[in-house]
Structure formats: C-alpha cells, structure tokens
C-alpha cells in the first residue's frame, strides 16, 4: 500500500517535471519540427499556413541524387561528403577523448610540478578563439604540407583532425579531470601498491568507471568535428556536409526546402550517435539507483 502510494506520487512528480521540460523545449521543438516538415514540402513551412503547402518526396530524391536545385545545378556525391564528415568527426572525437583521458588522469592523480599551471592554462587558452588561431595554424600547415596532391588529400584529413581536436582538448582535459576526481582514491590504490603500472590501472580499472565522462567528451568531440566549418573549409580538400550546406545556403537563389532536407539528413547521424551513446550509458547504470 505504502510503496504504491510513493510510486504514484513519484509518477505524478515525474510527469510534472517532464511537462516543465517540454514547455521549456517548445521553441526548439517547433523550429526543428518545421524544418523537418519543410524538407517534405514544396515550400518552407514557417507560419502554420499550409494552404499552398504540398507534401512531396522530391527534395529527398534530389538530395540523394546529389543536387542542390530543382532545375539545374551539378550532381554531387553526397555520400562522399557524408564519409568525409564522419572521418573528421570520428577522428576529432577519438583524439580529444584519448588525450583528455590521459591528461585528465595525470592532473587528477599525480603530483608534479606545474600541475596547477597546466590546469589553469588549459582553461585560459580557451580565450584563444579558433578564428584567431587559424591564421597561425595556416602558417604551420603551409610549412608542413606535402607537395603531391594525393598525399595532400590524406594529409589534410590528418591535419584538420589534429587542429580541430586541439581546440577541444582543453575541454576534454578539464572534464576528464573532474570525472577522475569523483572516483575515490581507494579504487586504484591497492593495484598500485601491488606494483601495477599506472598505465595499466588507468586503462583497466579507471576508464571503465568513468564511462559517462568518456561518452560526454566523445559527444562534444564528435559534434565539434561534425559541424566545424572554418577549419574544414580552410584545410580540407574534400568537403563535409557542413561546408556543403553552408556554401549552398544563399538566401537569394537557394531552394530552401531542399536545404531543409539536407539539414535534416545532416542531423540524423548525430541524433543516432547521441541516442546510441546514451544507451551505452544506461547499460552501465542499469543497476544504479535513481529514485
């Protein structure tokens, strides 16, 4: 009886919280739902006046044919853009997480000279915006790049991933340090006393425990790479979906519903990536107590 009462109360409370959340999210929901609707229409749906609005799959068909106009335009390989976007985003996600997990651990767990300074500078270098640094990064690229076009193409992926990941590293170091801090020292103490190397402890014991943190950092890295514009546009030979959309979104000429389709297509993988990483989180915490 009593437990049932508590559960009902809990459910009412949850519905209330959920209602508040949805109300707060309403504007975002509205604009993105309209965006998706527009991708299936003959015009942009903006003001709930659907009198001249017609449902059509044409935008999506054109998109997968790689075209950005109803009449005219050239055909592009949209899947190639998709692939290069995925490579950049995946690379950035992996690199930032890896570096963040290493450094975050060291700062959280090891005493060394300059530890505080390192941590502080990891925050303050965020005051260096990517749009300013890029001139210097360009300088370096100029010096380092190979001459052969085929090599440049691969090198440009490599360099974009490194340069873009670098912008996210301060974030991941700080986040990781925070997550390592939450783990009690006892977790690794016995292993270390037994003579295991720090590296082994880090990999086998600690990393599995901070999966939520890793996932959070992965998500940020992935999104940063997925949507980057200025670095990709400056260095990468291939195009990503973001630069493809950006360079075709021109208010005077563009056929907007087609861009709505492109934008929806662009958003899908990130949503899938995000939700699946959330699933991973839930598996880890399935046994945990929430309420």
């Amino acid at each position: 009886m009593v437990t049932g009462d508590v559960e009902t109360k809990g459910r009412i409370k949850e519905i209330f919280y959920l209602g508040v959340l949805l109300a707060l999210s309403a504007p975002i929901l509205v604009v993105f739902v309209l965006l998706v609707i527009s991708s299936f229409g003959n015009q942009m749906a903006t003001n709930f006046d659907f009198s001249a609005f017609r449902f059509t799959l044409k935008n999506w068909r054109l998109l997968f044919e790689g075209r950005m106009a109803i009449t005219g335009g050239v055909r592009e390989n949209i899947w190639l853009h998709f692939l290069s976007t995925a490579v950049v985003a995946g690379g950035v996600a992996f690199l930032t997480t890896f570096v963040g997990a290493l450094t975050g651990y060291a700062i959280s767990r090891i005493k060394f000279k300059g530890r505080k300074i390192l941590l502080l500078s990891m925050l303050l270098i965020h005051a260096l915006p990517g749009s300013v640094l890029i001139v210097g990064v360009y300088f370096l690229y100029r010096v380092l790049m190979p001459q052969n076009l085929v090599f440049i193409r691969y090198f440009s992926f490599f360099y974009v991933i490194l340069a873009r990941a670098a912008l996210e590293v301060p974030l991941s170091v700080w986040l990781m340090k925070g997550f390592f801090d939450l783990l009690p020292w006892e977790t690794e103490w016995s292993a270390l006393v037994d003579g295991a190397s720090r590296f082994l402890v880090w990999r086998k014991i600690l990393l599995p425990l901070i999966k939520p943190g890793i996932v959070a950092v992965l998500i940020f890295g992935f999104l940063a790479g997925w949507q980057d514009l200025i670095y990709v546009r400056t260095f990468l030979i291939d195009r990503t979906l973001a630069t493809f959309i950006e360079s075709n979104l021109e208010t005077e000429m563009a056929y907007m519903p087609l861009l709505a389709a492109a934008a929806t297509f662009y958003l899908l993988p990130t949503i899938v990536f995000y939700i699946s990483s959330q699933q991973l989180l839930f598996k880890v915490y399935a046994g945990g107590i929430r309420r």
Binding site: A69, Y138, R142, R233, T234, S247, L249, A254
Partner: peptide, 17 residues
C-alpha cells in the same frame, strides 16, 4: 556552389596552398 562570396573566400585561402 550557390554562394559566390564563400567560394571566393575558399579560393583565397587555398590558392597559396
């Protein structure tokens, strides 16, 4: 591409390379 200013920008940055 549709946007000719963006294409100009990209040409500017990639021509020296």
């Amino acid at each position: 591409e549709l946007d000719f200013t963006q294409m100009y920008q990209e040409f500017l940055s990639k021509q020296p390379l």
